[in-house]
């Protein structure tokens, strides 16, 4: 069982080895020789580190894709900036007119209904006032 102190040191060794590997220097043999107490675990972890570096080599996007995306982004960026320096809300006046017209229509209908009811009531009153035969 590896103790906590050894774990911390092993962590440092792995970090150091990986950093050197990223600089192009594979110091596996030297590291294993320097830290023989970690040899069984260390050798396997160093090997894994090398395999990871090989498997995760940087990949770059295709040039055509990269250039096309940049162009599309710049077009979109330009388009995004334009509304902020021209008309703020071109549909605001139209919206006010539409709302006003709607309110006017409702008011007209209400007045018409009230007028019809009044006329109907007056007609009913006259009928009740005729003398009986």
């Amino acid at each position: 069982m590896v103790t906590m102190r050894q774990n911390n040191s092993l962590v440092d060794v792995l970090t150091m080895y990986t950093d050197r590997l990223n600089e192009g220097r594979d110091m596996a043999a030297e590291v294993v020789r320097t830290f023989p107490e970690y040899a069984p675990d260390l050798a396997a972890l160093l090997d894994l580190t090398r395999r990871l570096k090989a498997a995760l080599m940087p990949v770059k996007p295709a040039l055509a894709f990269r250039q096309a995306l940049r162009a599309n982004l710049l077009v979109a960026r330009h388009a995004k900036l334009v509304p902020h320096i021209t008309i703020r809300n071109p549909f605001r006046r139209q919206r006010i007119v539409l709302i006003s017209a709607a309110i006017g229509s409702v008011v007209s209908v209400v007045i018409g209904v009230i007028a019809a009811l009044v006329i109907r009531n007056r007609t009913a009153d006259r009928t009740h006032g005729l003398p009986s035969a």
């Binding site: 940087p58 990949v59 770059k60 996007p61 990269r66 995306l69 940049r70 982004l73 710049l74 960026r77």
Partner: peptide
């Protein structure tokens, strides 16, 4: 923004 893109596109893609 284009410069930012060029600076970071490779790492994000990777």
């Amino acid at each position: 923004f284009g410069v930012l893109y060029e600076t970071h596109v490779d790492r994000i893609y990777n």
